[in-house]
């Protein structure tokens, strides 16, 4: 693992809580690691396991999925559905050798700008320590056919 390894992290977040929390981190001029790319979705209920697989295919070393705290979902219970799916999907990935340490889940409300900034830093650190997800990258390399629409 080289010293200068900078992990690539892709985040899927809901617009009402975590995305707004990330905006708040910005308006509060907090500083955090530049490794995360955010994809905005209406609700955690919209976040499909497929997105996680595609992010891995794009060479992500870590994934973050985040939304409103239980009880706060703008759509009343999209996040409860999401929580169940994640629970199952996470176990499934872990069992097939895609370590849970690389796939992180969190609740971040629109008010938690600080939590957002801290989380991005700690997730980035954690993934940096884990190093690049070489095993998965090898698979990608073997895959000649690029994904098409």
């Amino acid at each position: 693992m080289s010293e200068s390894f900078e992990p690539k992290i892709i985040a899927f977040v809901c617009t009402y809580c975590t995305y707004t929390g990330a905006d708040l981190a910005g308006t509060s001029r907090l500083k955090y690691a530049p490794n995360v790319r955010i994809i905005r979705l209406p609700c955690t209920g919209r976040i499909s396991p497929m997105f996680i697989l595609k992010a891995l295919q794009q060479g992500a070393d870590g994934i973050l999925v985040s939304g409103c705290h239980p009880g706060d979902c703008h759509f009343t219970h999209g996040n409860y559905h999401a929580r169940r799916r994640w629970m199952v999907f996470r176990t499934l990935l872990d069992f097939t050798g895609i370590p849970s340490e690389r796939i992180k889940f969190s609740w971040i409300s629109a008010a938690e700008g600080h939590k957002f900034a801290e989380l991005i830093n700690s997730v980035t650190d954690d993934i940096r320590k884990l190093g690049p997800f070489d095993q998965y990258k090898n698979l990608i390399r073997e895959t000649e056919a690029p994904a098409t629409l």
């Binding site: 919209r46 976040i47 703008h74």
Partner: peptide, 8 residues
């Protein structure tokens, strides 16, 4: 309301 829970 457009949450997308069903889609997933």
């Amino acid at each position: 309301q457009g949450c997308g829970t069903c889609v997933t």
